[in-house]
């Protein structure tokens, strides 16, 4: 049995489905970038601090990470579009999870000399760890790029939702991003750059988390504990 059901309009010509070709190309690029990032982290161990703390080296790491997480999100959205993406909700111990998210960015944090803090409450939460990793990875990479000196990640419970928060002490989100209420049904505005893709993906992932008639959502604002941008994802 083929998966005809997910593609109502099947092209009768023998040319392969273009979106599938794209998806496998994206998959390939993503894996290559993974290798590239790994090599960069290895280089960082071998090179002198004067190189590894130079803005150019950090830009290299940041941009590669950014493209990598864009590709991860694209693949996620492709699966969402093919409607075979569903949230695999499991119980996770939140402090472990947050530590793992931050650990991945340690080379860049150290490279840019940024202070970081995890303020985790020792609770377990219910979420799809893979999907949420795609969201937090992008968020953290952005926070590291736009913060001045510090970032802080934390969790709390609010109105029966698990809230994961990433805060920085940068200049905050531009007002255009704060006012927009990103709708997963609306098309992405590609002119505004990839931050929007990240937000779009974050919203899509939040919506996939449903429990007892409630669904997750994303909240962006400025201020917060460090006075910069704050990203929050609320999960029921």
């Amino acid at each position: 049995m083929t998966d005809d059901t997910t593609r109502p309009d099947r092209d009768p010509s023998p040319t392969p489905d273009f979106s599938m070709v794209m998806a496998s190309a994206v998959h390939d690029m993503k894996n290559s970038l993974g290798m590239l990032l790994h090599s960069l982290d290895e280089l960082r161990e071998e090179l002198s601090p004067s190189v590894t703390q130079s803005p150019r080296f950090n830009t290299l790491r940041y941009e590669a990470e950014r493209v990598h997480s864009d590709l991860v999100q694209l693949l996620g959205l492709y699966r969402l579009d093919q409607s075979n993406l569903s949230a695999h909700i499991e119980e996770h111990y939140v402090p472990d999870y947050l530590e793992a998210q931050l650990a991945r960015h340690v080379p860049l944090l150290d490279g840019r000399g940024i202070d970081y803090e995890i303020a985790a409450e020792a609770v377990s939460g219910f979420f799809d760890a893979d999907l949420l990793t795609g969201v937090l990875n992008d968020t953290l990479n952005n926070a590291i790029r736009y913060t001045h000196k510090q970032i802080r990640i934390s969790n709390r419970e609010e109105d029966g939702y698990l809230v994961l928060q990433v805060a920085d002490d940068g200049n905050g989100y531009p007002s255009s991003m704060l006012s927009a209420t990103p709708d997963t049904a609306a098309p992405i505005d590609f002119t505004s750059g990839s931050t929007r893709l990240g937000l779009y993906f974050a919203n899509a992932v939040a919506h996939l988390h449903r429990e007892g008639g409630r669904s997750g959502f994303v909240h962006l604002y400025n201020g917060g504990p460090l006075g910069g941008g704050v990203f929050e994802i609320h999960l029921p």
Binding site: G34, M35, L37, H38, D96, A100, A103, V106
Partner: peptide
């Protein structure tokens, strides 16, 4: 463990 892996993420994961 998902590549790329660095010292911090390896040690965090193994510890947990």
């Amino acid at each position: 463990l998902t590549k790329p892996i660095n010292q911090a993420s390896l040690s965090q994961r193994l510890n947990a």
